[in-house]
Simulated scan of single mutants.
Amino acid sequence: MMDFPEKLLNGYHIFMKSRFTHERERYKQLAYEGQKPETMVIACCDSRAAPETVFDTDPGEIFVMRNVANLVPPFHPDKEYHATSAALEFAVQSLKVKNIVVLGHARCGGIRNALDLDGAPLSTVDFIGKWMGLLTPAAEAVATNTLMTSGERQTALERISIRYSINNLRTFPWIKRREDQGKLALHGAWFDIATGELWIMDRRTGDFIRAEE
C-alpha cells in the first residue's frame, strides 16, 4: 500500500503543535456549534490560488467550493450529479451566506484548455473539455482575436469567465430571490499568482479594479 504523503503528515504535525494548540477553543466551538460563514468562495482547483491563503481566513470564516476554472453552470435541475449546484444550495439555503465570491486567477490551466480550440483531450471521455465547453462561445471569440497577445487572451477569458459565472448564479431562483431582497451580494475577483495582486470586479460596470494594498 502506498505510504501517506510525508509532506502532508509533517504539515499536520506542525498544525497540531502550532495553530490547533493556539486555537483549540475555536475549533471546539466550531465542532459543537457548527459553521456560520458569511461568505462563500467559488474558486479554482489550482494549488497556487487557495482562497483561504489569499484572504488569510480563519477556520469557519469562508465556505469554499473549488472546481476547474471556478465555473458556475446554469441552473439545470435533472437526475444528474451537480457538485457546484449542491454546494450553492447548501451555502445559500442552509448556511444563509451573505456573499458569494467567484475567485478567478492568472495562468489558469482550465482557461488555457478552453482557448486551445484544437487541443487533444486528456482522455477519451474528455471531462475537462466538456466542462470548459460552458465557455465555448466566449473562448472562440477571444481565441480568434489576433489583435491580442496570448497572455492578453488568457487574462481576458479568465475575467470574462468570472462575469459568466456570476450571470449563471442569477439563474438559480433562490439566489436571485435573496439578491433581489438585499440578503445576498454576488462578487467577482481575480488573483495574479505572480504578483499577488487582487483585482475586484465592479458590480455595476463589470470592470476589474486593483485592490489597494
Rank of each mutant, 00 (worst) to 15 (best):
M1Q: 13
D3N: 12
F4D: 13
P5I: 10
K7S: 15
L8Y: 12
L8E: 02
L9I: 14
H13R: 15
I14T: 08
H22R: 14
E23W: 09
R26N: 10
L30T: 10
A31N: 08
G34E: 13
Q35R: 08
E38V: 11
T39R: 02
A43E: 10
T57I: 11
G60C: 09
V64R: 00
R66L: 06
N67T: 01
P73E: 13
H76A: 11
Y81L: 12
S85D: 10
S85K: 06
A87E: 11
E89R: 15
S94T: 13
S94H: 10
K96Q: 09
K96F: 04
R107W: 00
L117V: 03
S123A: 11
S123V: 08
D126A: 09
D126C: 09
F127N: 14
K130A: 08
M132G: 02
M132P: 01
P137E: 02
P137N: 05
P137S: 07
P137Y: 02
E140L: 11
M148R: 15
T149R: 08
T149C: 06
L157V: 04
E158R: 02
R163Q: 14
I166Q: 01
R170A: 10
F172V: 04
W174K: 12
K176L: 14
Q181D: 08
G182H: 06
L186E: 08
G188R: 04
W190G: 02
D192G: 05
A194H: 04
E197R: 05
W199L: 05
I200E: 11
T205R: 07
T205E: 06
G206A: 09
D207K: 05
I209Y: 13
E213C: 07
E213W: 05
E213I: 06
